[in-house]
Structures are given as C-alpha cells and as structure tokens.
Amino acid sequence: MDRKEEVILEVNHLTIEFHDHDTPERVVDDVNFVLHKQEILGIVGESGSGKSMSALAIAGLLKRHALSLSGEILFDGTDLLTCDRERLRSYQGDEISMIFQEPMTSLNPLQRIGHQMEECLRIHHKEMTKKERYDRAIRTMTAVGLDDAEKLYRMYPHELSGGMRQRVMIGAATIARPKILIADEPTTALDVTIQAQIIALLRKVNVKRETAILFISHDLSLVRQLCHKVIVMQKGRIVESGITEEVFEHPEQPYTQALIEAIPKVEL
C-alpha cells in the first residue's frame, strides 16, 4: 500500500492519574505512539486497561479537575494538552472526531437525531446552507446503514434501538470528514451484517478522505481485518505493538496470546 509516511498525531509519554481517591491511581502510564496520515491503528487490551481514557485525552475531552495529565499529544505541531481552549475547540469534532463507547451518554436525549447529526456542520461549516446540511445528513445516515433516514431525522434518541443509536453516533462523527477519527468500540451492539457495513464505511473514509483512524475494539478479528498496526494495552501501559499481521502471527506477550486463543470457535 502506498501510504504517505507523514505523521499526523504523535503521543509522547502520555500519563493520566486520578487523585479523587485516597491513593492516586495511574490509569494510563507512559503511552507512546505515532499515527500516520491515512493509517488505521488498532488499540486492544483488557477491560479497564486505559483505552478509552487515552482516546478521551486525545479528543481533548477529559475533565481536567480531579486528574493529572502529563506528556504530549502533538497534532499538526500543536500540543493538545497545553494549547488554549479556543484552539482545542476549533479542532474538536472537525479535525479530530470521536465515536463513543456508550452511545446513549453522548447523544442529547432532548434533541432530534437530525439536529445532532448536523451539529458539527453547524459549528465548523457555517458556509453550508440548511438544505446542504440536510442532504449531507441523509446521505451519511444511509451510508451507516440507517434505512428510512428521512423519518429517523425527526426522531429522538430514545425512540431508536441500541444499534441504531450507535450508527447515528458513527454518522455524526464522520459527517464533517475529520482528519483523525477515534472510534471507541464502534460496533459492539451491531450484528455481523451491519458490522461489515460499518467496517466498509470506515475503510472508505480512510482511503477516500484520507482520514486516519484510531480503532479501539475488543474484537480481534475485526482489528485484524481493518487495522494496519496494532497496540496492545494492559494496566495502563503498552505491552506490545507492531504491524497487525506480525503481532497476530507472533504474539510475544502472554496476554496477547490469550486474547488470540480465546477467539470463540464454533464447530458445527
């Protein structure tokens, strides 16, 4: 594959500690990696190992009280951990966009689906007309496998099934064509057919729009299909990383081996 080896995101010594309990808790410990332009990087690791925390830090979404953040997150030469709020906000959702692990917590229960789909366009693409936004929203919803988009556009989150909400989130995160997309367990509530559709969509976004993707998942077979490189996390640290096929063929850490072995097999 002919990918430009241009670095788009560089994470150096990222460390996150919570201080709201008696003993400070380090949930992300000296994490280092680079994401190249147009690369899909997988993050796998056991539950509680710090995947979502790292993702939230990169998206600039960690509440800064009660925790301490150190290290650097360089995007376009700017350190997202220290830059001013205005600058950060101008990236959020537009240049860097995130799909959250639990869709219900990130959709606003009081606003219609269509409004939330277009959120990012309203903030960052003021040049677009209402009609253009609407058309783009409908097209994006169809692309993530939501049939009957015109009807869903007018509905509220609680009127959708779990999997439909998850797809709305994916649509809202990709609608503005970000440079980096962070997808935290984007397909957990989806059946295989729609999962395949989402994977195809992410691939298309990655190739056609040159979006780099940070793909967090506990589903190793998905990671293997989609990601160029992979990072394995355990207890806040990166314990293994490399080209996906190499890691899968020759896992070095016992944890990685256990994960690969535990992929359920069904003999009929």
């Binding site: 056991e46 539950s47 957990t188 994960l259």
Partner: peptide, 8 residues
C-alpha cells in the same frame, strides 16, 4: 458485548 473474549 463490551467485553473482550477472555472476560466474556
């Protein structure tokens, strides 16, 4: 659905 295979 949100758990990796070992914990699953």
């Amino acid at each position: 659905s949100a758990l990796d295979v070992t914990i699953q």
